[in-house]
Design a protein around this nucleic acid. Structure first.
Lengths: 135, 135
DNA sequence: TTAATAATAGTAATTGTTACTGGTATTAAG
DNA sequence: CTTAATACCAGTAACAATTACTATTATTAA
């Protein structure tokens, strides 16, 4: 890839991810973009999503099961994944640098970064569950 | 599944994972077991690995890219993933409970667990790299 | 010993993703 | 405003990891 050319599809994909705060999958992006570009290809969506990740304009979230998700928030933050509905929420944490330092003390390679992911039940599912119990 | 029946294949898979400390993939387990059971099926390996995970006898490690890995160490600990050779090493960290408490303060769902993964260059790759530079 | 059924081997199907191909859109130069 | 170069596209095929299906086999309890 010598120089990069503009493409309306890419711009649309970027805009969609940046305006979508539910950490969409490639398929969700595909569905969304199709409203504007009815015959966009799924391959184009995948290609541009990973391109945008390389450019640092969005980030990719890998999950334990199910497809990758994408995040418009490129500032350092953590994720919460609901084990019931699989929704992903952002969690801001104050300075987690020291975790790497702590880990470095028990390890003999070079630690460059770290990712912490939280699991549990989101607010919405908690509410749904309490309704069920009452019934 | 009413009651569980014994199977030599499952026992062999459990033993293999418990004696293998390099966090094997399903394929690596398959290759290993095949020495004892030359015509075991890959499906049997997958089925029993997830069964053993459910039983809490081993754990599963999802990676950003590439297949899942399996870990005989069921005690709470973190993982380091080398971004160069993809090897996975265990890292013991003193009490990380407070990370969840800290996250809980900025979040309105129920946090049940968390996983921290470290990325960087392992000792072996560091050494290999320094050899290359000298040459 | 036998009957019930969990587990198997082998194979097919599914899912998520990447690669290929011939044609199209964008860009820069004449 | 052409035209030429090429990044990008749509569509489709290929791929890797995993799961589901089916007929047979092994384990268990009666």
């Amino acid at each position: 890839m010598a120089t990069m050319k503009y493409s309306r599809q890419r711009e649309s994909i970027r805009d969609f991810v940046h305006s979508c705060h539910e950490h969409p999958t490639a398929d969700m992006v595909y569905a969304g973009i199709r409203e504007e570009f009815p015959n966009i290809s799924l391959g184009t969506v995948y290609r541009n999503l990973s391109l945008l990740v390389e450019l640092g304009e969005i980030t990719k979230i890998s999950t334990d099961s199910g497809p990758d998700r994408f995040d418009c928030n490129t500032k350092p933050h953590s994720h919460f994944i609901c084990t019931q509905c699989q929704c992903i929420r952002d969690i801001e944490l104050p300075d987690t640098e020291y975790i790497e330092k702590m880990a470095a003390e028990n390890f003999d390679g070079e630690i460059i970064s770290h990712v912490t992911t939280f699991y549990g039940i989101c607010k919405d599912c908690l509410r749904k569950n309490s309704f069920k119990k009452e019934a």
